[in-house]
Simulated scan of single mutants.
Amino acid sequence: MPSPPSSIPPSPFPSSSAVVRALRTAGCVFAEEEAELLLAAARTPGELAAMVDRRTAGLPLEHVLGWADFHGLRITVEPGVFVPRRRTEFLVDQALAQAPDARVVVDLCCGSGALGAALAAALGAVEVHAADVDPAAVRCARRNLAAFGGRAHTGDLYAALPAGLRGRIGILTANVPYVPSAEVPLLPAEARDHEPLVALDGGADGLDVLRRVAAGAPGWLAPGGCLLAETSERQAGAARQVFADAGLTTRLAVSEELYAHVVIGVRQP
């Protein structure tokens, strides 16, 4: 059930303590940090009151602010678009370590385009493409990739990509949905109620989309190019096998600090 309105008056400008109190009452764990961000973003008392009301009603903070902090970038995030997770920064770092000289980057299941933008920012002069089945996500990705000359395409996985990318991709990221269908109702309400199901539900075992991505990867990767996907600890072994079955040389990278598990597959020359 949504939390009650914050009851913060539109004037005078509310104090930080009033905002913190409203957020804490609504169950926001990081109320102090969130209050600072909301106070910095609001231009008027009325706007602040509206933002606090949206947050206390359960909208993800990033959707309230209109952006997410990801790998040193401010990524535009519109309502209804998957919010990039901080743990996924580990996937970006692994991609850069695996292929520091990559010149073509593709971000499948791109959501906001955060992965493509972060990689483009780090690699410099690079050709970057992103793709998603959700038109709202693609609109968002176009905005985030514009500064890097990137392109975002609407469509189902590889079918959305220009044919000229075949055999040229140095880094292929695929932050695919990997939550098993039966576990989607167990997700936190912020994700379950405000992010698209297509970005969360990975099928019966959570690996349906990953299998499709891995099967097509060898035909799109350049020799030595790599595919990276995030998974859960429980699914990591099965995900590695999916990559191996597709003919990729695989390894698993783990960050205990971020509780992140990234499967990496390389197309051998």
Rank of each mutant, 00 (worst) to 15 (best):
T173V: 14
T173M: 04
T173C: 09
T173I: 05
A174G: 05
A174C: 11
A174D: 02
N175I: 09
N175S: 13
N175Q: 07
N175E: 12
N175T: 11
N175Y: 05
N175K: 05
N175V: 12
V176H: 00
V176N: 00
V176F: 03
V176Y: 01
P177L: 02
P177G: 03
P177C: 04
P177S: 00
Y178K: 02
Y178R: 02
Y178V: 03
Y178H: 01
V179H: 03
V179N: 02
V179T: 12
V179C: 07
V179W: 03
V179Q: 06
P180K: 12
P180A: 10
P180H: 11
P180R: 10
P180F: 11
S181P: 05
S181K: 11
A182Q: 14
A182W: 15
A182M: 08
A182P: 09
A182S: 15
A182Y: 14
A182R: 15
E183T: 09
E183M: 14
E183W: 14
V184E: 09
P185T: 12
P185Q: 10
P185M: 09
P185K: 09
L186K: 14
L186P: 07
L187I: 11
P188L: 13
P188K: 07
P188E: 07
P188G: 08
A189F: 04
A189Q: 07
A189N: 03
A189R: 13
E190Q: 15
E190Y: 05
E190K: 07
E190S: 15
A191S: 15
A191Q: 11
A191R: 10
A191H: 09
R192Q: 07
R192W: 11
R192C: 12
R192L: 15
D193P: 10
D193L: 15
H194W: 13
H194A: 08
H194M: 08
H194S: 12
H194N: 12
H194C: 14
H194K: 05
E195K: 01
P196K: 01
P196S: 00
P196Q: 00
L197I: 06
L197H: 08
L197T: 04
L197F: 00
L197V: 13
L197C: 03
V198T: 12
V198P: 02
V198N: 00
V198C: 08
V198S: 11
V198H: 02
A199M: 04
A199T: 04
A199N: 02
A199W: 02
A199G: 02
L200F: 04
L200R: 00
L200E: 00
D201Q: 01
D201I: 01
D201N: 05
D201R: 01
G202D: 06
G202F: 01
G202S: 10
G202N: 06
G202K: 03
G203D: 07
G203L: 05
G203Y: 04
G203I: 04
G203W: 06
G203R: 11
G203N: 07
G203V: 05
A204D: 14
A204V: 15
A204M: 08
D205C: 12
D205F: 05
D205R: 13
D205M: 10
D205V: 13
G206E: 05
L207W: 10
L207R: 15
L207P: 15
L207E: 10
L207K: 09
L207N: 10
D208L: 10
D208N: 08
D208T: 14
D208E: 15
V209D: 08
L210G: 11
L210Y: 06
L210H: 06
L210T: 12
R211F: 07
R211S: 06
R211E: 13
R211P: 13
